[in-house]
Design a protein around this nucleic acid. Structure first.
Length: 602
RNA sequence: GGCGCCGUGGCCAAGUGGCUAAGGCAUCGGAUUGCAAAUCCGACAUCCCCGGUUCGAAUCCGGGCGGCGCCUCCA
């Protein structure tokens, strides 16, 4: 086999290679360019969370390589022809194409939800038939493959390197057979082309009508989009054998060149019992828990333990994302090194979400102090650009050290878990800086405000570093869109409640103030008193009813205390929002005008 | 049976030969707060067991115990 000369190694980046079973310095086929091929799904059914592990880590890998100055092309293939697709199409009485189309849409929506947006090409097997047939033809011509009764098989005995990826020998594999044993010359031979059975989707070929074997599409599509030799080939650990072993056999025998320099395999997800606790406090009166319970039937597979797979009924990724949010799931997956097995369960995702929330509070703090939006910060897009000049400021020095450690972790085979540790460290550093510089305090004195200018500049620098690093992981890149359908009502109601509470606090009526806060807590809203006023966390769809009940109760108390000013304030403010209160003997009910008197409450 | 992976505090999880074993969650103290929340400070592990190599090991080697993956479709 010909050798391919590679670029000089990157100064610090190392990647684990399944082929050599060790970490290697990173070199590329073409200087400054990287080609990545990741094996995507067979789209016979909806995606499950296991399908997201590879895309999420490779999304980070591409971001990181780009950040390191490489021009990266990333391909994720889609297998849209296979036995299971055919079976599914028959079962549903639609075409194979339709089955594929549906599940591709599902897959891509899920990717988008997890922030995976770096993929350049999604080639589909059915759209690459010419390349596939050409490749098989070449293998037959070179005697690496043989036609047999409408099928074409790859002859593993002709490939001297066969088994090098998965560390097996051809003789080890000769015990196997399978249903096609009669047509094969060796038990370990595998199909490149399968002759069509009646009523199966098929394509014309020199060997008659048929369809490609599973492995050949990847050899064909990677060659078309990335060349005969490209840099990184990825996929789940379960694809090492036979899929990737066979890809190597096909491509390398055909081209007499290495197929890929690095073979990177992500660990598999395991579902584990939901009863197994993974830290994480449950919020008081949390609606999260309620939802988890309600959906526990849908997650039956997650309670069984063992490997995730569609054949075991795993699925419902879209529902999981709806429940947990894509960012949490992404963050959850990145907490663990990509080659490790991840125990997957919802409490663990919620646990990851708690950490994420502390980051959001930091961003909010930045906004509160500076009046600027964190998402407007412009960050360095490359590693060299981000390298800060030496500073004698201890805080900036410490931040720079966090950045160095973060990058060192990423350099070490994309250790996102270690990198996230540094993100937490940096966040703590920034919070501490805010605490110590007293930036949260309101300054009336112009002299003090002037002193703050330097501190504010420093704060901006610190957040910029934080955003730069978070961006490598693909988190906190863009402002989350407020999706709360109730937010139109929610904000004004909260403002009213908080104003009522502020009045109570001003009058040292702490009993009322505390009642209000506790009531909000039980509806899932946390109130935080700041120097400039109270802040609150977003509620969910059910919060509105809770807020209304709280207001009704507050008004009732005020009326009982003959505090008609407060009672009327509540009613009048609500009226301005188009909400009418109706006092009935059975209690007060509320009606939303906008909905033509349709009662929302019970 | 063949090939391979893993076992770090209550839980999750970095670290793979040498400063005080990252970080997150949880817990317990303290600062702060009207009280909280948030934030900060502090406390909390000698790394499954045994043996070996070494001046020195969680980190290397051997053995054991335990968990898991692939060898059939699978990310």
């Amino acid at each position: 086999m010909d050798t391919v000369s590679l670029s000089e190694p990157h100064a610090s980046l190392r990647i684990y290679n399944t082929l050599s079973k060790r970490k290697e310095p990173f070199r590329t086929v073409q200087p400054g360019k990287v080609g990545i091929y990741l094996c995507g799904p067979t789209v016979y059914d909806k995606a499950h969370i296991g399908h997201m592990v590879g895309p999420v880590i490779f999304d980070c890998i591409k971001r990181y390589l780009t950040y390191c100055g490489y021009e990266v092309t990333w391909v994720v293939n889609i297998t849209d022809v296979d036995d299971k697709l055919i079976a599914k199409a028959r079962q549903r009485d639609i075409s194979m194409l339709e089955v594929a189309q549906e599940n591709i849409a599902d897959y891509q929506e899920n990717l988008a939800s997890l922030g995976v947006d770096q993929i350049n090409h999604f080639p589909r097997a059915t759209q690459c038939m010419d390349e596939i047939i050409g490749l098989i033809h070449s293998l037959v011509e070179q005697s690496f493959a043989y036609a047999s009764d409408g099928d074409v098989y790859f002859d593993v005995t002709k490939d001297t390197g066969y088994g090098k990826l998965s560390n097996r020998s051809v003789s080890d594999l000769q015990g196997e057979g399978g249903t096609t044993v009669g047509r094969k010359q060796n038990a370990a031979d595998f199909a490149l082309w399968k002759g069509a059975k009646p009523d199966e989707p098929s394509w014309e070929s020199p060997w008659g009508k048929g369809r490609p074997g599973w492995h050949i599409e990847c050899s064909a599509m990677s060659r078309r989009l990335l060349g005969k030799t490209f840099d990184i080939h990825g996929g789940g650990l379960d694809l090492v054998f036979p899929h990737h072993e066979n890809e190597i056999a096909q491509s390398e025998c055909c081209h007499s060149r290495p197929m890929a320099t690095y073979w990177a395999h992500n660990g598999l997800l395991r579902s584990s019992s939901q009863t197994g606790k993974v830290g994480g406090r449950s919020k008081p009166g949390s609606k999260l828990n309620k939802t988890s319970m309600a959906d526990s039937a849908a997650n039956a597979t997650a309670t069984e333990g063992g490997k995730m797979s569609r054949s075991k009924g795993a699925g419902g990724l879209a529902e999981l994302i709806a429940r947990q949010g894509g960012e949490r799931i992404r963050f959850f997956l990145l907490r663990t090194h990509y080659r490790s097995t991840v125990q997957f369960n919802e409490p663990a995702i919620e646990d990851a979400g708690i950490g994420l929330e502390s980051f959001y509070r930091l961003l909010k703090r930045y906004q509160r102090i500076t009046g600027n939006d964190f998402y407007d910060l412009v960050v360095p897009s490359t590693r060299t650009e981000g390298a800060s000049a030496a500073s004698d400021d201890p805080t900036l020095q410490a931040a720079s050290s966090c950045r160095d450690k973060f990058l060192a972790a990423m350099d070490d085979d994309f250790n996102t878990g270690g990198a996230i540790g540094e993100l937490f460290e940096l966040a703590k550093l920034i919070n501490k800086f805010c605490d110590e510089s007293g930036l949260d305090q309101e300054k009336g004195d112009p002299v003090e405000r002037h002193q703050d200018t330097a501190a504010l500049g420093k704060l901006r620098q610190l957040l910029t570093i934080w955003k730069e690093l978070a961006g490598i992981l693909g988190i906190f890149c863009q402002k989350p869109t407020a999706t709360n359908a109730t937010s139109d009502r929610f904000e004004p109601l909260m403002q009213l409640i908080v104003a009522l509470r502020a009045t109570a606090r001003a009058k040292k009526d702490f009993a009322t103030a505390d009642t209000i806060r506790e009531s909000l807590t039980s509806v899932g809203i946390t109130l935080e008193d700041r120097t400039g006023g109270s802040e609150w966390t977003a509620g969910d769809a059910n919060s509105i009813e809770g807020l209304m009940q709280l207001l009704i109760a507050l008004r009732a108390t005020a009326r009982a205390n003959k505090d008609f000013t407060t009672a009327d304030t509540i009613r009048n403010r609500l009226e301005e929002l188009g909400i009418m209160l109706e006092d009935r003997p059975s209690g007060t009910e509320w009606v939303q005008n906008a909905d033509c008197g349709m009662r929302i409450a019970e």
